[in-house]
């Protein structure tokens, strides 16, 4: 464990807390993509299936349970919460996720770290899907132009988590002999690259004060 990975995990937890605060606390799903929320639930339920047999680290075990629980809670409230459904904009949240899930599934089968292990195929699928899972959310924000304050912090924390993981991988590559994880490195790079435009606008709007809303062209 290094500081970059720890801060990355904390940023990931923060993104969940912000989203839960908005959806469950604020009873509003305005500006939030259910499609992204559902893809994240798929990402965690597939990748963390090793909860059933891998007890290597209590820290990982607890956070995996937290991430699965939080992502399913978010999907549940967005689908069945009366006030959440009322504020959720299904028409605008229209990114065709089948064009994301299918290629990731094919890639997961073809490119993984042990072709004899079904779990490795599922694990690779989950890594690829996470890289593109934010697209419906960014697509929705782009359509709406203005990003509500809490939502902007949620997306920023979610983007920052994988950016911090990139630093974690660089650190591990430099300090650990023959450490290599090409699949997560490339996927993490793509995932973080997708946020660049948002990061830019987030920075532009927040440098004038944390409560300014983010405007996307």
């Amino acid at each position: 464990m290094n500081i970059f990975r720890f801060l990355g995990d904390m940023s990931h937890i923060l993104s969940f807390l912000l989203l839960l605060h908005k959806i469950v606390g604020g009873k509003s799903a305005a500006g939030i993509s259910l499609r992204t929320a559902e893809m994240y639930a798929i990402v965690f339920c597939t990748r963390y299936i090793d909860l059933l047999w891998n007890f290597a680290s209590l820290y990982n075990y607890l956070l995996k349970l937290l991430f699965i629980g939080a992502s399913l809670t978010i999907v549940y409230f967005m689908r069945y919460g009366p006030s959440q459904k009322a504020t959720y904009n299904a028409d605008e949240d229209a990114f065709p996720v089948q064009y994301l899930i299918a290629p990731c599934a094919v890639l997961g089968v073809l490119i993984n770290q042990d072709h004899s292990s079904p779990f490795e195929m599922v694990w690779a699928f989950s890594i690829y899907l996470e890289a593109v899972a934010i697209l419906p959310q960014l697509f929705l924000l782009q359509k709406q132009g203005e990003v509500e304050n809490l939502t902007s912090h949620y997306v920023f924390a979610l983007g920052a988590y994988r950016a911090l993981y990139l630093l974690n991988w660089m650190f591990r590559f430099m300090t650990e002999p023959d450490y290599q994880q090409r699949i997560v490195w490339l996927s993490g790079l793509v995932q973080t690259a997708l946020y660049c435009d948002f990061f830019y606008h987030y920075y532009q709007s927040k440098k004038g004060g944390l409560n300014k809303s983010v405007k996307l062209p």
Partner: peptide
């Protein structure tokens, strides 16, 4: 390709 790793990260 076979890469020696255990999934020690989230």
């Amino acid at each position: 390709e076979q890469e020696d790793h255990e999934h020690d990260e989230l």
